[in-house]
Simulated assay, not measured.
Amino acid sequence: MSSETERELIARVAALPLQPFQFGQYEGKRRVASFGFRYDYSLRRLQDADPIPAWLRPAINAVEAFGGPGTRIGQVLCTEYDTGVGIGWHRDKPHFDRVFGLSLGSACKFRFRRTAAEKWRRFTLSAEPRSLYMMSGPSRQVWEHSIPAVQAPRYSITFRTMAERNS
């Protein structure tokens, strides 16, 4: 994508009514807005969220084309990471299938880990601005991922397909 498109998407995300990420009784430092569905950590289930905005449709079309035939995005999460903010080790909830992430603004290290006998096997991916990554299969089901504190403001748009049992 062009730098101009990146700037437009960042402006759109920054203009959303972003809220601190709620993880049950805890509040994360990153700010988010969910569309289509959101996961409620207190209730431990998916909840309906606002409809996906029309301005995301061109990005969704590109992600669905990248994902191949049958790829249908059902949930979008827009996230703002201020300088010094990251995200801890986790796997996305099983309600979702494939996960696509569009990295905007600052580059970040995208870390992966999984158990290997008594140790951790680790891998780091550099998520450059305007890059798109996809997690499916083992990278989605077996490996955990995290992002250490970013050095400059970063935005991401996460696009998720729904798991078969939830569609």
Rank of each mutant, 00 (worst) to 15 (best):
F21G: 05
A117M: 12
A65F: 09
R165L: 10
T71P: 03
F37T: 14
I60D: 04
Q141Y: 15
E64V: 08
F100C: 00
H145E: 05
Y39M: 08
Y133R: 01
Q75S: 11
R98P: 00
Q19P: 04
I87H: 07
V142F: 07
P51S: 11
A149L: 02
P53W: 09
V32S: 04
L16S: 09
C108K: 00
V85Y: 01
P148S: 04
A127W: 01
A59N: 05
P69S: 13
L16Y: 09
A62W: 06
L16Q: 13
Y155E: 04
S103E: 00
F66S: 10
K109A: 13
P51V: 07
V76C: 08
D92L: 02
G24Y: 12
L43P: 07
V76M: 05
S131C: 07
R111Y: 01
L16D: 06
A15E: 12
F159W: 05
G84F: 04
R121A: 14
R122V: 12
F123R: 15
L125H: 13
P51C: 08
T124H: 00
A152Q: 14
T79G: 04
S146F: 02
N166H: 14
R7V: 09
D97F: 00
S103Y: 00
P148G: 03
R91Y: 00
H90A: 03
G84E: 03
F112E: 02
P51T: 09
T83Q: 12
S167M: 11
G101C: 06
L102V: 01
W143V: 04
A15R: 11
E128L: 14
I147Y: 03
Q22Y: 10
P20M: 08
R121F: 06
G105Q: 05
E128S: 12
E4N: 13
E64S: 08
G88I: 00
S126Y: 09
H95P: 00
D40K: 09
A117L: 13
Q25L: 11
D50E: 15
I147P: 02
G101V: 13
Q47M: 15
M135R: 02
D82E: 13
L46C: 09
F23L: 15
E118Y: 11
R7G: 10
T71K: 02
Q47W: 05
G36C: 03
A163D: 10
W143C: 06
P153F: 02
I147F: 03
A62L: 11
A149T: 01
M1V: 10
K119R: 14
L77Q: 06
C78I: 05
P51L: 08
G70K: 08
V76P: 04
L43K: 15
A62F: 02
N61K: 13
S126L: 13
K29M: 11
R45P: 02
G88L: 01
T158N: 07
P138H: 10
Y39L: 08
R111I: 00
T71E: 03
V85G: 01
E64F: 06
R91C: 06
R30I: 04
Y26W: 12
